[in-house]
Simulated assay, not measured.
Amino acid sequence: MTPDYLPFHPSPKKPDYTPPPGAVDAHCHVFGPAAVFPFAPERKYTPCDAPKEQLFALRDHLGLSRNVIVQATCHGRDNAALVDALEASEGLARGVAIVGEDVSETDLKAMHAAGVRGVRFNFVKRLVDATPHEVFERIAAKVAALGWHIVVYFESQDLDEVAPLVRRLPGIVVVDHMGRPDVAQGVEGAGFAAFLRFMEENQDVWVKVSCPERLTLAGPPYDDVVPFAARLVDRFPDRVLWGTDWPHPNMKSHMPDDGALVDVIPRIAPTEALQRKLLIDNPMRLYWPEEGA
């Protein structure tokens, strides 16, 4: 099966920045291997195999301690690869699944036992077909009983369309990749200002300050994206998460070096206190609350 985007970096550098012990990569994926966990027929892209063994090896190489593995659209609602990775992680990974409104209570409880703690709603039009917001609300009501949160993925121009739904969802809602701001507008632009207001007005909304490689116009070392992430960390230190997004699906301009992505962390969270909140306190509170972090 031939992938239709660049393969992940084969030998990322050892980061210059040393993450604190216990640091969490709060957004990454496992894909396949396709021979064992086939990709969804309705997928919009075909990834390369990126199995759990390589993810966990990368975690250790980067000096990280835990993973939050997010189900991607290429596997659709078949969460088998995700659950397999969680069960192999020895408690060092949690998951975010994709489910339909017909998901059973039995299936949800089984995923919870494996380590799933949230569901993802995708609104990026080039990746998924449109779904009525009422469907998402019914799913959210089902998973709320387990204490799960919701992850939402949308692009900045769609904030006004998605925001009313987010306000109706129960519990914590996590926005992927800074709401995909238009970097060309600059950090003081109207689009990002609207997102900051959205965060201010909705105290249960968190945000991942991830994916500079996906948002950049200038390329590495992502100087044009760093101010956006730094602003969010400064304004909302208790509601930010960070992740690699490995293996970086749909990247066609360049494939980032994951070690270099880790080196961005002290540029967006310049103090040890902010780094601890971003990498340990916040993800542990959301995904491993039983450990009392």
Rank of each mutant, 00 (worst) to 15 (best):
P3M: 04
P3L: 05
P3R: 12
D4P: 10
D4Y: 12
Y5F: 15
L6Q: 15
L6K: 13
P7C: 03
P7M: 05
P7G: 02
F8I: 04
F8W: 06
H9Y: 08
P10G: 09
S11D: 15
S11W: 06
S11E: 11
S11R: 09
P12F: 10
K13A: 15
K14N: 06
K14Y: 04
D16E: 13
D16S: 14
Y17W: 12
T18D: 00
T18N: 00
P19A: 11
P20K: 01
P21I: 05
G22T: 08
G22K: 11
G22D: 07
G22Y: 07
G22N: 09
G22I: 05
A23L: 07
A23N: 00
V24P: 00
D25V: 12
D25S: 12
A26M: 11
A26S: 15
A26L: 12
H27T: 11
H27W: 12
C28G: 01
C28H: 13
C28I: 06
C28W: 02
C28T: 15
H29I: 14
H29Y: 13
H29D: 11
H29M: 14
F31T: 06
P33S: 07
P33K: 02
P33F: 07
A34T: 02
A34M: 04
A34H: 10
A34V: 13
A35V: 12
A35E: 14
V36I: 15
V36K: 14
F37P: 02
F39R: 09
A40E: 08
A40F: 00
A40D: 15
E42K: 11
R43I: 09
K44A: 14
Y45I: 07
Y45Q: 04
T46I: 13
T46S: 10
P47R: 05
P47H: 06
C48S: 09
C48N: 09
D49K: 02
D49N: 08
A50W: 00
A50S: 13
A50Y: 03
P51R: 01
P51N: 01
P51V: 14
K52A: 15
K52S: 13
K52R: 11
E53N: 06
E53Y: 03
